Computed example of a mutant assay.
Amino acid sequence: MKPLLGGCACREVRYECKEKPLVQFICHCRDCQHTSGGAFMAFVFVPRDRLTYLSGSLHHHDVRAESGRELRRQFCSACGSPISAFWPGAPMVELLTVASLDDQSIFTPTHELWMSRAEAWHPVHPDTVKLAEGPDEELVRGPVRTYFATRQA
């Protein structure tokens, strides 16, 4: 697999991940709408220990997600582009924004979350499982647990 490469709009922040995404979602929660400035935010989950920030600096903003968990959203300190997020209480994975990927064609979402908050004027992806609220914990933890249990060093 070729590495995932990405960064911000002004190209100050650059990153590389040497692992394929573990989970891929579209989230319609109100916080993702605010953060993206649009109707949703799309994420790929990657193992944090396989993600390297090559340049630039990130600022962060901590929020209480609709799930009730603390979420740290990270963005470029120069241009403000959203780059990633992670749960400080469970920092094994980082959620890269699909908009920050150089090659967005790798994005193949399986689920759309928080459809109860989705805007009626915005179409949804035809091939995803739609969930009214957040995911069942196994939807995320299952693939993450399997990955860490079976990965090579």
Score class of each variant (00 low, 15 high):
P91K: 12
R64N: 07
S36H: 05
E112D: 11
E94A: 13
D102M: 00
G89P: 11
R50N: 15
A65L: 01
W114F: 07
F107M: 01
L113V: 11
P88C: 08
Y53E: 06
E70W: 03
R72Y: 02
L96W: 04
S84H: 09
L58K: 08
S57V: 06
A99C: 15
R73Q: 07
E94G: 11
H60D: 13
D103Q: 00
F75A: 02
E70G: 00
G37R: 11
W87M: 11
S67F: 02
R69Q: 05
T108G: 05
H111T: 05
H59Y: 10
A42V: 05
E94Q: 12
W87S: 13
S67W: 02
E112F: 13
I106Y: 00
S67E: 03
V98G: 00
S36A: 14
L51F: 13
S81N: 11
H34Y: 08
L71P: 05
Q74S: 08
H111Q: 07
L71E: 14
L95E: 03
Q104P: 01
L58D: 14
F43P: 10
V44M: 06
G38R: 14
S100F: 01
I83M: 04
L113T: 09
H111I: 02
L51T: 05
R50M: 15
S77V: 02
A78I: 12
C79A: 07
T97R: 09
H111G: 02
F45L: 13
S36R: 05
Q104C: 01
V44N: 04
L58N: 12
R72I: 02
R72N: 02
G37H: 12
I106F: 00
R50W: 13
R73L: 07
D103A: 00
Y53Q: 13
L71D: 10
A39G: 14
L51K: 07
A78D: 15
A78Y: 04
S77I: 01
V46W: 04
R73Y: 04
L113Q: 10
P88Y: 12
G56V: 05
Q74Y: 06
V46P: 12
G68I: 00
S81D: 09
V46G: 15
L96T: 04
H60M: 09
G89T: 08
L51Q: 06
Q74T: 09
E94P: 09
H61S: 06
A65F: 01
L58I: 11
F40R: 12
V98A: 00
T52L: 07
R72W: 01
D49I: 15
R69F: 03
G38P: 14
F107C: 00
Y53D: 05
F86W: 10
R72M: 05
C76M: 04
G80S: 10
S84G: 08
Q33A: 13
C79K: 03
F40C: 08
S84M: 15
T52C: 03
H61E: 03
S81P: 13
L101M: 04
S57Y: 06
T97C: 13
E70F: 02
R50F: 15
T108P: 03
W114I: 00
L58S: 12
A99N: 15
L96R: 04
D102R: 01
A99Q: 13
R48W: 09
W87T: 14
M92C: 10
L71G: 05
S81F: 15
R48V: 14
